[in-house]
Design a protein around this nucleic acid. Structure first.
Lengths: 122, 122, 122, 122
DNA sequence: GTGGTCTAGACCACC
DNA sequence: GTGGTCTAGACCACA
């Protein structure tokens, strides 16, 4: 977790969970780690994890079985993808478009930058 | 101004001003509208505008002549561009890269999306 | 059982049992299904069924014969009915009254709604 | 607030707010008391009030203006009413129907009970 | 063991 | 002044 990010921690963790779902690491109907487990693992207060869960449950990405734990929703993959796509299209895309135009960055430039990013990580 | 955005109002206004500088709408050494004018125009508390100015002054994009007003700095164009580029490279690029990968959006797709955006605006 | 309900599972099961008693499906002094049977049937942890039994025993609706099983109490029908009535009068009625008022639902409307419900089930 | 209710306090407060909206006491676009004010008034921890607000914002009943406070949403009345009606129809109605049948309470009886309730309060 | 709620108190960004 | 986030710790109901 990045404790200095302007992004709230509980959102950062939610994003991580969404990533795990999108990449297939966590399958539908699979139980996800308990509040306490995640709290230890991420070195964050259990309340904060709880907040993440409440947030994701509201979005129908995970659901709760009383006294047992939280589970990946059956259609979590679609839901997550749709949500992320909506956000990207509505919020990010116009910003990216505008910024690239202001900075004179072309699509081709972006492709090159991506390649460099890809290399760095490999 | 978008009062529902998670972006601080004073930042939103700062971005608008930077845009005006980058597009050449506001030239170096040109006086920019007064706090009051901007406050009325954007329907925002004057304090908030003041904060924008302080923020931009710190970044050497505008400067103040006591009792007269705020002016676009001589090298504001370069400064603004550098700052924006830095932010784009360091913060935005990795996020865009990752998100596009997760959503299976290719560079080519992005180009098409840009074209659509461009058409809508024209 | 509804694992998503905010009603505790053991209460949900207790309600089911009470219903069976009130409708006469389970007669006084009749043996009720074993913890295991109910657990399998309702797909619930046996501990939870046990809790239901303890709960109903406290309320003198069922009683236990050691090593044999649980039985419907002799006056279970009266007890159950009284309890349910008390709850309805004290808790439910004020809520229903208030909600119907807020929603502009009249007694007559309610009658119509009941008729529809009755038809659906028949 | 009823601190012994099985209903969470933050939900109780949310219900109160919804009532104020439905009865027209709080009009659309009107600012609602601040977190701290409500906390003092209800003798509850500010965090709990905050939770109520987050909860209601999620349901599009109130919204936030950065640094200013929370406001009743423009269409809060409709939203609230729809939500409450949905809950009543889907959750409460079947329960009421079933319970009244089990207890041999007729619609007419209910009408009488309501009249008594009405008198007590006046 | 699981989650859920609440408190008290801190710190921060924002208007 | 406003809300927002986080922590620490407590207590409870539930499976």
């Amino acid at each position: 977790m990045d404790f200095h990010s302007n992004q709230a921690i509980y959102i950062q963790i939610a994003d991580l969970i969404c990533e795990n779902i999108l990449t297939g690491k966590w399958q539908p109907e699979e139980r996800i780690p308990s509040v306490r487990e995640l709290a230890v693992h991420t070195e964050v207060n259990p309340n904060t994890i709880m907040r993440t869960f409440t947030y994701l449950q509201e979005k129908n990405i995970i659901y709760n079985k009383r006294g047992i734990g939280y589970f990946v929703a059956d259609d979590a993959w679609d839901t997550t993808r749709d949500l992320m796509k909506l956000k990207f299209m509505k919020n990010d895309l116009p910003y990216i478009y505008k910024t690239m135009k202001l900075l004179d960055i072309t699509i081709k430039d972006l492709g090159d930058l991506f390649q460099q990013l890809g290399k760095e990580r490999s």
